[in-house]
């Protein structure tokens, strides 16, 4: 069973963005939101969830419509679908996770402009069937998520000494003269952390290629 799953096309489509085709660290898409919402772990996770849901649905919907979308207006159609999904996601957050939606504020709306979504719609959904497209959406959402969550954790821990809002730095460390790193709460810190991760990942990938 596992072997069948592993050799299926859907599995390959799903796992590629988690590693060798990661949208953030390899394809360098979706950087803007990675800088903005990674100050805290919690906002990063909610952003990832909203983004993954939108991406999965937009890929699925656009892929099922791919044969009837007139070629000359396809970008506009992609935008309509994505924008509608984002607004629905935003409304749901406002209704059920008000605190988080206040923190994310404009960034939820900006999911529309997240290059990953348009990129995957153009590059994958319009050329593949809905089943594969949904897996591609899910994979890319989570691939984006891995990076965001790691960066969010590093920045929250470094900048505020907390994780998920809970203080994890032991008091003793502060007593020894440790001070929270102010740089971590600014956007440049995200640039540096993401840059380091992209470097690390590319090194690992090229080692893997050499090895095989």
């Amino acid at each position: 069973m596992w072997r069948r799953i592993k050799s299926s096309q859907a599995f390959a489509v799903f796992t590629a963005p988690l590693s060798i085709k990661n949208p953030v660290s390899v394809l360098v898409l979706g950087i803007c939101s990675s800088l903005a919402v990674t100050i805290q772990l919690k906002t990063a996770v909610v952003m990832v969830l909203a983004m993954t849901v939108v991406l999965t649905f937009s890929n699925g919907i656009l892929s099922s419509l791919r044969k009837i979308i007139p070629k000359n207006i396809r970008i506009i159609v992609e935008l309509i679908v994505i924008a509608s999904l984002v607004i629905v996601a935003d409304q749901c957050l406002k209704a059920f996770m008000f605190d988080v939606s206040k923190q994310l504020s404009v960034f939820v709306g900006l999911i529309i402009t997240n290059c990953i979504i348009m990129g995957r719609a153009e590059a994958f959904a319009l050329a593949n069937n809905p089943w594969l497209s949904v897996w591609d959406g899910l994979g890319n959402g989570l691939g984006y998520g891995i990076i965001l969550i790691v960066v969010g954790a590093i920045r929250e821990l470094g900048g505020a000494g907390t994780l998920w809002g809970i203080s994890v730095m032991p008091e003793a460390v502060y007593d020894m003269g440790y001070v929270n790193m102010g740089l971590m709460v600014y956007a440049p810190a995200a640039f540096i952390v993401i840059g380091l991760m992209a470097w690390l990942q590319r090194t690992i990938i090229s080692d893997m290629r050499k090895g095989s």
């Binding site: 007139p70 309509i80 679908v81 409304q91 749901c92 209704a95």
Partner: peptide
């Protein structure tokens, strides 16, 4: 097609906004 998309999406959004 564009008109159809607008109607469908518009309806969906109105529904979501009203319910929530």
């Amino acid at each position: 097609f564009a008109f159809g998309m607008c109607v469908v999406c518009g309806f969906g959004l109105t529904l979501a906004a009203t319910v929530l």
